[in-house]
Design a protein around this nucleic acid. Structure first.
Lengths: 208, 208, 208, 208
DNA sequence: GATGAATGAGTATTCATTCAT
DNA sequence: TATGAATGAATACTCATTCAT
């Protein structure tokens, strides 16, 4: 049993190594630019071994997308848990969560937020990352729900919750993306401030 | 001499054809997904002829980036020309310009704002699209200048102009990008409203 | 000792399972198209286990060839045993045997009569299936012997026995092969008739 | 014009070279065993150049099949042209044509008559060589027509023409195949005699 | 200026086979 | 005996780029 367990653990470990390797490589070289050989070399395996763990390049890419979203979701849950009950605080918590995800898991941010853009393969053909789309919608719904709550409690003016959620998300994303594009322009602290300030602005605009 | 001129014109014409072909293809198939053969076929030339006009695939891609920025810049100039002199109006004009660029030159928007993301080749290695970075900075400086002006004239509160400019730009970009990613969520009219509303919010937050 | 015997039995059983699995797969997927993994999966073993029973893919293929010929030979012996003593009857019995082998052991027929054709590996390099060649010769000799007998007894005209045997065999084989190639053209009953008729024609041509 | 023609000719020549190379290789190594690299090396080209002339391995294989059948058909036409008008003579002519095709174009014989057997790829999936099947049927119809004619003219007994045609063809094919399988057993002259004798036997059996 | 022909360097994926456990 | 893990060697096909004509 020990033996078996050890093997399984090791197998899991190698799988992790491959995922890790790919997580680092994809953002740096793009989807097409990352070869199976690069991924396996980084993980100390032969290219053929890759197929013992993932059935194709697409599959490992999807796995990373799913993992990225998982991390983001967990971050949001944590921030919400430690936030107050007011809609304003909840929205702040989500913005903070997304920012923390960005700074603390940059590879994953790049993978779920950026990589598929500009990749004909995934951009034109979004079926290839179906989870991504579905789960992004989930997150947006969560924000929309909070806004809706605020509207119902009379603290927010009567804005379309979903549209507002999308706008807020897009705004934050846009600022983070700018940071990505021009990484010299901001220090990390400054982005955090920017995100906070932006959220503040939006929330204030929503109020009453 | 006449002959020569005509030849030059023709040469220019074919160059244009290639650029046009590439402009349409890059956003639809991605950078790697667009082959020289596709570009030349669309332009009625042989693949080899491509190299009479551009020395590599990277070069035509860069040319499109430059052109996209040119168009955007012109749009901004136009909008500014027909706008009032107040900082508020100027900022509104710039936001409107970017939105018009987005709707009226979608291929170029995709190329300058999206395509290079997720392409290791350009993303990691921004030297490959140096203009893009430089010229984006120019635009941001323009906005920052307007904000600075507003601050000096006492109509805007004392915010860091450049940082605020980046934030505004990122916000707008983020919303447009969201539209790109999930094109069903908004109708075009609604994006326009979103952009306007967002600008309004930011400007109002800036005022006094 | 009992234990050992049981183990041997089991080993034999698994070997059989592999052979059986391969017998079904080879005709359906061709030699190259049949992978070790397919064979072992079908037999409930791991690919690595294959090499405990056969030292290579070639070897199991040869084993199936040998087995196919064994079955055919047995069929011929049976038919001859229950046939009369005249050369005519004996030849009829052999033809019937081959036809029965074809219908009753189609996988083996495909393996010994067809599969190696068109496989450069075996076709060009017949050393790889040496048994096949040797044992086919044996069968032909048997037929030739019968014809020789007929000639000696004066019931057959003075034809070259071996050449006639080959011709007869080829004729039958050709008809069966046609059935294989174009399985819609004949019903099984019709092939049987065709084979019988063909044999009858040949025998009659031989007589006197 | 000369220039253009020369280029076209040369292109055609290279195409021929590739076909020739493949014609020799396929029978000797089988379909899967013949690699693009082997084909191009034999023709003095790089593997990539192959795709300037044929869009895939399947395509060149099909081209060879078509070509083989063409040659056979021409052979049959020639033999029929120089044969008498009686059904007997016509059948003899066809048999002779097939035999001549076999001896004079052995590679093609192997390709159209043998290669696809035992290749899961083509055998199980005959759509991959659709011409082959269709055109083989044509040839069989031709023979059936001649038999039908003989029956109508009262020189042949009332046999089912198509079935008889198939049988005859299969018989000849079987004998040739035996030669293929066991190339030492017959000299060429002997096969010719065998085929002739076989045809004679069948025709005689058909006659009233 | 234009192009048909050619190719070097890839690139994902497959599979028979080995070996430590 | 059995196998999970690993891999070397293939292999069809692609594409940016070159060059003789």
């Amino acid at each position: 049993m020990k033996l078996r367990a050890r093997t399984d653990e090791e197998k899991q470990l190698k799988r992790e190594k491959l995922l890790d390797s790919a997580r680092v490589l994809f953002p740096r070289h793009g989807y097409q630019g990352t070869t199976i050989e690069m991924i396996t070399a980084n993980a100390g395996l032969s290219p053929a071994a890759f197929y013992l763990y993932f059935s194709s390049k697409t599959v490992i890419y999807r796995a990373l997308n799913a993992r990225g979203i998982d991390i983001l979701q967990k971050e949001i849950e944590e921030q919400l848990a430690s936030a107050g009950v007011s809609a304003r605080e909840k929205i702040g918590a989500i913005a903070r969560a997304y920012f923390r995800f960005f700074t603390g898991n940059r590879d994953y941010y790049d993978i779920i937020a950026i990589l598929h853009l500009g990749q004909g393969e995934f951009f034109t053909n979004p079926d290839k990352v179906p989870d991504l789309e579905a789960r992004t919608s989930e997150l947006l719904s969560l924000i929309a729900g909070i806004i809706q709550e605020g509207v119902e409690k009379g603290v927010f003016s009567d804005a379309d919750p979903w549209r507002t959620a999308v706008t807020l998300w897009g705004m934050i994303d846009g600022v983070l993306l700018l940071e990505v594009k021009k990484s010299t322009s901001f220090t990390k602290v400054r982005i955090e401030q920017a995100v906070e300030r932006m959220t503040e602005i939006v929330v204030r605009a929503l109020e009453i």
